[in-house]
Design a protein around this nucleic acid. Structure first.
Lengths: 207, 207
DNA sequence: TAGATTGTTAATCGATTAACAATC
DNA sequence: TAGATTGTTAATCGATTAACAATC
């Protein structure tokens, strides 16, 4: 178990987690695969198959304990172990993430941001210190953040990404709108491609 | 053709489009399915199958004409027909989209933004007029935008979304981090769930 | 105990890959 | 014409669904 879980299953795990959090907040402490499936527009079989990729979390005749299942998924997704992240690029998108996005809920703490605009150096933005992008290499080597968030222009994406990976960053959250080709192909990359999302919506309209 | 194309194929179309744009910019006017596949980490069969969901765009012994194929995909994704969009919520994320994101490239023009903060009313942000969210119903009825972009708090998402759809909005680009349940289930929704994306990245690290 | 619901195996469905005749 | 590469059909692979014995 755990190893070689298919990508489609992995991608459903955060959604399960979100729904379990909602149930937890409503003080619901038990749910069956069929009730959860209904809620999430899946099938009960799918729900049980998915969870059984990671182990048996349920109990026959009863269903799943919400608190336990939520904790088990948190463990699987590593939401428990505090991970450190840095922002590369401190423009509007970076600010949007700093101000609105709940990193803590994802088990991530934002430790620094980097930009090329000198007027931002050594300022704090939403409690996060901003430094010169020219110092990022040194910073990463010294502080070993796990995740780099790329919110900088496409043109700088490849160069910066490869520097970061060379210094030991373990994963890249990519908002640059381009597909990165890293020197080290083993580093996971998660792309958030706004334009692809909008184009799919555009396709679906009038169909 | 065109009708009943599987979602996985639809989701690849914007990526094809992006790569064809890149090829076009490099003045490459011809590409084979195998070269395009290599570039995009797909297989040549997949590329040909995908395009043939929409029609025969290639030529035996030659491959695909980049300009023609790009135009054909633009047509399929409705990037050609100018669509109007409004922003609901004019916070940091909305500003990030207004300032960084190339709506035009997606065939969309941003015509207005709406917020509940009075200090923003009747201001222009990055060339986009901001109005009171209480007037959005009236605005949508009068101007018939195609797409509503939800960049407002989770708590307001459902209420606002249902109002918009009732007034004729044709699609919703959802950044609220919640799964919308619309009264009208026929309206397409595209979710951009940051936390799911970050959690998937977190899972992939150390595996 | 009887009812409910899991974990798991088998059947079905859909997507990807392979193969090749058609043809530019 | 010969070589290249498509469009399309058939084979394989993987994911979803159905079924049911195990068991709480």
């Amino acid at each position: 178990m755990d190893k070689n879980v298919s990508p489609v299953v992995v991608r459903r795990m955060p959604r399960y987690y979100r729904h379990l959090c909602e149930l937890h907040d409503k003080n619901i402490d038990r749910i069956s695969s069929s009730a959860l499936a209904e809620r999430m527009s899946l099938t009960a079989s799918q729900v049980r198959q998915d969870f059984n990729c990671f182990g048996g979390f349920g109990q026959q005749g009863y269903g799943y304990n919400v608190t336990d299942l939520k904790a088990a998924i948190a463990e699987i997704l590593c939401i428990t172990g505090e991970r450190k992240a840095i922002l590369c690029g401190a423009g509007n998108l970076a600010r949007a993430l700093m101000s609105n996005f709940n990193f803590t809920k994802c088990g991530v703490s934002l430790v620094a941001a980097f930009d090329s605009n000198p007027s931002l150096f050594d300022v704090e933005m939403f409690g996060v210190p901003v430094h010169s992008i020219s110092t990022v290499e040194q910073y990463v080597s010294a502080h070993s953040p796990d995740i780099a968030i790329l919110t900088l222009p496409k043109s700088d994406a490849h160069k910066v990404a490869n520097i970061l990976v060379k210094c030991g960053v373990k994963g890249i959250w990519n908002f640059t709108g381009t597909d990165l080709e890293l020197d080290d192909p083993g580093i996971p990359i998660e792309n958030v491609h706004f334009s692809e999302s909008l184009m799919v919506l555009s396709y679906q309209i009038d169909r």
